[in-house]
Amino acid sequence: MFPRLHIVTDALDVVRGAIGHGPVVIQVRVKSGDRDAYQLTVAALALCRAAGDALCLVDDRVGVALAAGADGVHVGADDLPVEAARRVLGPAAILGATCRNPSSARAAVAGGASYLGVGPVFATISKVGLPPPIGVDGLAAVVDAVPGTPVIAIAGITVARVAELPGHGVAAISAIAADPAGATVKFLGALAARGGVA
């Protein structure tokens, strides 16, 4: 089953702490150059492979993902279009797309997205320049629009909020960074307690 917890990071220490507790997706997001992104992805991928239940994706950079042999890519609204990324990656790779409403979600799925990162659900300080939060109702509207496609809630996600969120799972950045192992265990526990993957 596709992991329900996605951890977005630029730190190998976070990867080390987050894996080994249950299935997760590690999404490598590096703001510096491709070389740094490639080196971190190669290192993270090795840890994910050793864990056996962790996938490694690269944020934005299709070329880096291909060069490193990552499991796939997540593209945002300003990145390569979903259709183009799918052509480059081929049919087998995981391809995530950021969406915030039902129409963009349906378009992304039609273009070849494997899953959707939907938000910002809540306000967050992890990324600047984001549009206004869509809230739980906005997230639910997207979930309803793309039945069968995993929807991952992003932005402002905490363990305490997991129970109120519809969709397949959640993505976390700042909520994981301070205590990767402990926070991962808590998130996985909250997702399991919530039940369902709709």
Rank of each mutant, 00 (worst) to 15 (best):
D78W: 08
D59G: 01
A141H: 08
F122T: 10
V14L: 11
A160Y: 07
D34Y: 12
A153I: 05
I19Y: 10
G169H: 00
V82K: 08
A177H: 13
G52Q: 12
G148L: 00
D71T: 02
A43K: 10
D79C: 00
Y38W: 12
V146Y: 00
A84C: 03
A108G: 05
L12P: 00
G63V: 05
Y38G: 03
V64F: 06
Q27C: 05
G33P: 14
V151L: 10
V151Q: 12
A84N: 10
G117R: 04
R194E: 02
V170E: 05
A160H: 06
K127N: 11
V121P: 09
A92E: 15
H168W: 15
G20A: 03
V28F: 06
G33M: 07
A178E: 03
G189I: 11
Q39P: 02
A113Y: 02
I26D: 02
L12A: 03
V58M: 06
A145Y: 11
H21F: 10
H74K: 03
R86Q: 06
V162M: 08
G119S: 07
A153G: 07
E83H: 11
G129F: 14
V162N: 06
A11D: 15
D144Y: 04
S103A: 15
A175Y: 13
F122E: 12
A145F: 07
G167I: 14
G195F: 14
T184W: 15
A85D: 01
G96V: 00
G72L: 03
L130A: 14
A92F: 09
K186F: 05
L165A: 10
I157G: 01
D137C: 00
S32D: 15
S104R: 13
A46S: 10
L45H: 15
V82Q: 03
R106Y: 11
A67H: 06
V42K: 10
D137G: 00
V121N: 02
L12V: 11
G169C: 09
V64R: 09
H21S: 14
V25Q: 04
V88T: 14
I19K: 04
G135S: 05
A190N: 10
A43V: 11
R35N: 09
G196D: 14
V143E: 11
A85M: 03
A37Y: 09
L5S: 00
A70Q: 08
V170Q: 06
P3K: 13
V109E: 04
L139D: 05
A177R: 03
R4H: 15
C48L: 05
G167L: 14
H21M: 08
Q27N: 09
L89Y: 04
K127W: 09
R16N: 06
A44T: 07
A141D: 13
R35T: 11
V42F: 09
T158Y: 10
A50L: 11
A67I: 08
A97I: 00
G119D: 01
G148I: 02
P131Y: 12
A141R: 14
V121T: 02
T124K: 08
R106V: 01
A108P: 03
I152L: 07
G195Y: 14
H74D: 02
L57N: 01
A11K: 15
L139K: 06
G135I: 08
R16Y: 04
A65D: 01
G129W: 13
A54R: 00
V142M: 12
A172E: 10
I152D: 05
A68V: 04
P133M: 06
V142D: 07
